[in-house]
Write a protein that binds this DNA or RNA. Structure first.
Lengths: 280, 280
DNA sequence: GTGGCACGCATACGACGTACTCATCTTGTC
DNA sequence: GACAAGATGAGTACGTCGTATGCGTGCCAC
């Protein structure tokens, strides 16, 4: 089924028992948190228990190992073979628990989204709450640079933890009188700003790993080439920039700057939206 | 040199003639445009001439073929073997012109950045110009979804076309009295917003290619799972959203929305920055 | 006991990037 | 015109990857 043109990219296997085991375990991870628990607030998935010291394989152990490996070596340092050997298992043993690499990555994504457990500040305004969510996401990408690469590749996974996050962000704007669609637009606009900023962060981290050169070393390497182009005089703005200071310098400060600009703009919008024809 | 831990990812080869040929051709593409031409304004790279009908390989032909292939099949449908056969050449022949796949991708990135040739509207305000640049970038990612995946992986390449774009964006704010660093921050903040939004766009396109399911089909597939989670009652905001309308719906409209919010925020900032202590 | 089955793994296949090596073709020199 | 030297192209091979297939092993219901 699904044709797989030219024989490439077959991806998901269809061995019955494998898929069954995966679905069973995935459900075990998902449903108890999302469905049955009568928790007072939104309850993220328990994720991984204190890491059962057992030796047996499990979806949790596999996902945890894969996350550790991706954190350490990037998304293309992640291979089923190496995850397996890291767990002291045969490569194909993983496929009893996970249908394939893609599904494993999906599980990884939802798992890291459930990491930061502490609740947002209560009774804060929408602006504080949105900023809180944005910073939370920013930290997520700092810790797990590979996460952003998955975003660019796969449709946003609707794991319970991801949904929880979105819900929380939208709740930040509850009571403002915005239409649900607009609330959603705002939420993903903030998320987009964070992700866009994180692209810069991640590309530096990732490239540093790949080449072994730090950002400063890299800049020194490229300097002659850049200066050559600059010296043509066709880039006056960039020239001035280089003369004063040479780069983003503090990427966290820049992130805060851009986030604040977006929040300012949202404030203008909220203001004009919530009391339509008063001042005018 | 460079150690290559555990024997993985050797990447760039170092055969002298290969590197030489590459540098020579890359320079041929870069310098005549950036250095010698006495053009009135910023002049992007001539890129590829009317595609010489010749049969011989060339960097341009290789880059063009690779771009076409990535456009059609995504970044991981791109392989040196298939680019070569598409050009009617042996695989290793490409390595006479390009040191490796990474360098090829770098050339591809700069090439597509030089695509849209028409000048921005003259004498427009900073806001119009920034919006213009943002839309231009947005269209770029629509046409070449793979571009965003490279951004997440490699340090932003400083090809002449990319630099031209950045310079132009910064020139949009010339005369506002902002410090060069701030101008730069604003420019990359807008770019970050576009890229973050494009992540959503690209993930849909990419996933659609990978699975063969359109967005609507996919939503129909996932609906039972989503509704199951929604029906727990723990996601009131999302529930309301689904009841009214089920998704982003018009991603271009959303892009415009988020861009306008950011520009509004930048306007507030520019306003407060350019005439510091007058009204207050 | 003894099937059946859940589980783990060894082997194998076809893709990939690219290093090494040889063949062919072009060009400069006499 | 003959011929050496370099430029250019490609065939083969190595090590990596994801994963399909099929074979053992041990547990458990009957």
């Amino acid at each position: 089924m699904e044709a797989a043109p030219r024989g490439r990219r077959p991806r998901y296997c269809s061995r019955s028992c494998q898929a069954r085991a995966y679905r069973a375990r995935a459900a075990a991870r998902t449903e108890p948190a999302g469905v049955s628990r009568p928790s007072p607030a939104i309850a993220p998935v328990p994720d991984e228990a204190p890491q059962p010291p057992a030796e047996g394989l499990s979806v949790q152990r596999i996902v945890a190992a894969a996350i550790a490996m991706a954190d350490a070596e990037g998304l293309d340092g992640l291979s089923m073979r190496r995850v397996a050997t890291r767990l002291g298992a045969g490569t194909m043993s993983l496929y009893r628990y996970v249908p394939g690499k893609d599904a494993l990555i999906e599980l990884m994504v939802d798992a890291v989204h459930g990491e930061e457990r502490q609740a947002p500040p209560a009774d804060a305004g929408w602006r504080v709450l949105l900023r809180y969510a944005a910073r939370r996401e920013w930290r997520l990408y700092s810790r797990h640079p590979w996460l952003l690469q998955t975003v660019a590749t796969t449709r946003p996974p609707f794991g319970p933890n991801v949904l929880t996050e979105l819900e929380r962000t939208m709740q930040a704007m509850d009571g403002l009188g915005l239409a649900p669609v607009i609330t959603h637009w705002v939420a993903i606009a903030v998320s987009a700003q964070v992700q866009g900023a994180a692209l810069l962060l991640v590309s530096e981290v990732e490239e540093e790993r790949r080449t072994g050169r730090t950002t400063l070393q890299w800049r020194a390497d490229k300097m002659p080439a850049i200066r050559e182009i600059i010296d043509t005089g066709q880039f006056p703005m960039l020239t001035r920039l280089l003369e004063e200071q040479d780069d983003v310098a503090d990427i966290d400060a820049w992130f805060e700057f851009s986030l604040n600009r977006l929040l300012d703009g949202l404030a203008v919008f909220v203001e004009s939206e919530t009391r339509p024809p008063r001042t005018l």
